[in-house]
Amino acid sequence: MESYLIAILTIAGIYAVLALALNLQFGMTGLINFGVVGFYGLGAYTSALVTELLGLPFAAGLAAAIAVGAVAGAAASGLSLRLSGDFLAIVTLGFAETVRLVLNNEDWLTRGPRGFIISTRPVPDTLGRDGASLFYLGLVLVLALVAFLVLERLRRSPYGRTLRAIREDDLVPATLGKNVFAYRLQAFVIGSVLMAAAGSIYAHYVQTITPDNFTTPIAILIWMSLVVGGAGNNVGAVVGALAVTAIYEGSRFLMPFIPWLNAEQMSALRFIIIGIALIAVIRFRPEGLLPEPVNLPPSRTAQSSTSQQQYQVTGGTAS
């Protein structure tokens, strides 16, 4: 039971990093990324290939994942950011699907659906099995904490305010002479880098990765985490990830109570509930559990009270 708890916490920590990354992209900057699992999976496989095929240490795998995440993020967003948000959405979705196809089909490199086995682990050999999982949990929490602190700092900085201004209304910052495109690109790339890093950590944790580890359901869970927690709020993203993981994992224990459902139906039912819950939260509590902290620059607040109000109403879901 205890080791199960540690395992769930580790996964929750990784999801928290993903949710934090998505919060920077969507919550703070309004960029829709439906390809979360693409960046996540790319990071995982890059790290795995670098450590296993080239025999390099974990740190090199992580660094490579980060580099690939940055390039992929810059390419996907650079392509579509000048257009309306719908285009980024479809490009990222297509990107994730293409990554999945490559992972499944390039057997010679990824071993396809059979899975890629990873022996490199950033864990001292002297630790026992339990010690190793605790150590890994610590590692994940450190990454999550670093991500949180960096993003929270960024959110409070003038830079973060600019991102929010861009999210609310492209025209205002553009007239201020700020390069909206560059800001969006940067925000998207930082997010993608974090997702790829999360992928690397995940890969060396589970030690066997298959393309199926990086499919839509995970993306939905991450979106759910952010929307439930409160888009725009870093604490919300973390709380959301914990809550969603708890509910998702916890619902496993319901299984004995509905024995007439088979495993497939059970998993479908969980996803149905998650999907409906996501729609319901968007409809009835768009700001999530923890609404975005309102700290507009004074000039904007003073300018007009109506824009302030719009800000709050759409804060959770604005593009």
Binding site: I32, A89, T216, E264, F271, A318
Partner: peptide, 30 residues
């Protein structure tokens, strides 16, 4: 699903449509 959200941003509706898609897919799987 969509009419009650009229007036929300396109991004919101987009996200909801993905969630809906996920629900329908799993209803069929069920």
């Amino acid at each position: 699903v969509f009419r009650p959200l009229q007036g929300r941003t396109g991004a919101t509706l987009l996200l909801v449509s993905v969630a809906l898609s996920f629900v329908l897919e799993n209803v069929i799987r069920f």
